[in-house]
Amino acid sequence: MAEHNDNGRLAEQLAADWLVSKGYELLDTNYRHGHAELDLVMKFNGLLIFIEVKFRSGTGFGFAEEFVDSTKKKLLVKAADHYIYEKDWHKDIRFDIVGVYRDRNGTINFRHFEDAFY
């Protein structure tokens, strides 16, 4: 597997662990529908939350939220619609982005963008 895939999977695990420590409940990881993949599906305060995780080694090329374009958003919404139907969910939902950043010293930091789009 390519290094960027390994970094992405590690970032997803780190983000999931970080969110669980904040009280989120992890329901699914890497849920696929067609060409779309939901990195994390979590529940928090009665909301079903679909989370796109982006890994960056620094911010020189921009922040995580800048790398979720309109095409990606449409794919995420399509996969979320299928997930909602499959699980028969009838309550509110939210789409979040979590940026996982590793600085020069290897320190991991997170930026959480709640209700990032829809």
Rank of each mutant, 00 (worst) to 15 (best):
L47K: 14
R104H: 10
G8R: 00
E66S: 14
A15I: 02
I97T: 05
A80Y: 08
H33V: 12
T59V: 14
E114V: 13
F44E: 11
V68L: 07
R111C: 07
N45C: 11
R9T: 08
V41G: 05
F110C: 09
A36L: 00
Y85R: 15
L47Q: 10
K91Y: 12
R56F: 02
E86Q: 13
Y101E: 01
Y24P: 03
G58S: 07
L26V: 06
I97F: 08
D81S: 15
T107H: 12
G60R: 03
N5Q: 14
N105A: 12
A79G: 05
D103A: 00
F50S: 07
E66N: 13
N109P: 02
E3Y: 11
G106A: 03
Y24L: 04
D103T: 00
N5L: 15
L76P: 00
V100A: 07
H112Y: 15
F50L: 04
R32N: 09
L27G: 00
A15G: 05
K74N: 11
D69I: 04
D92V: 04
D17N: 12
L26T: 07
F44C: 08
I51C: 05
F61W: 11
A16V: 08
G34M: 00
D17W: 00
N5I: 15
H112E: 11
S21T: 08
F55S: 05
V53D: 07
T71F: 11
L48N: 09
H112A: 09
R94W: 05
E25T: 13
E52K: 13
Y83I: 08
D69R: 06
Y24G: 06
R111Q: 13
K78Y: 09
A64N: 04
A15P: 03
E3Q: 14
Y24E: 02
F44H: 15
V53H: 05
S70F: 06
F61K: 15
R104G: 13
L76Q: 05
S70C: 03
D6C: 09
H90C: 12
L27N: 03
V20G: 04
F67V: 00
F95E: 01
L75D: 12
F67N: 06
M1W: 04
G62Q: 04
R56N: 01
Y101K: 01
F44D: 11
G34E: 03
E65D: 13
V20Y: 03
G60D: 03
F55G: 00
H82G: 01
F110V: 09
L19W: 09
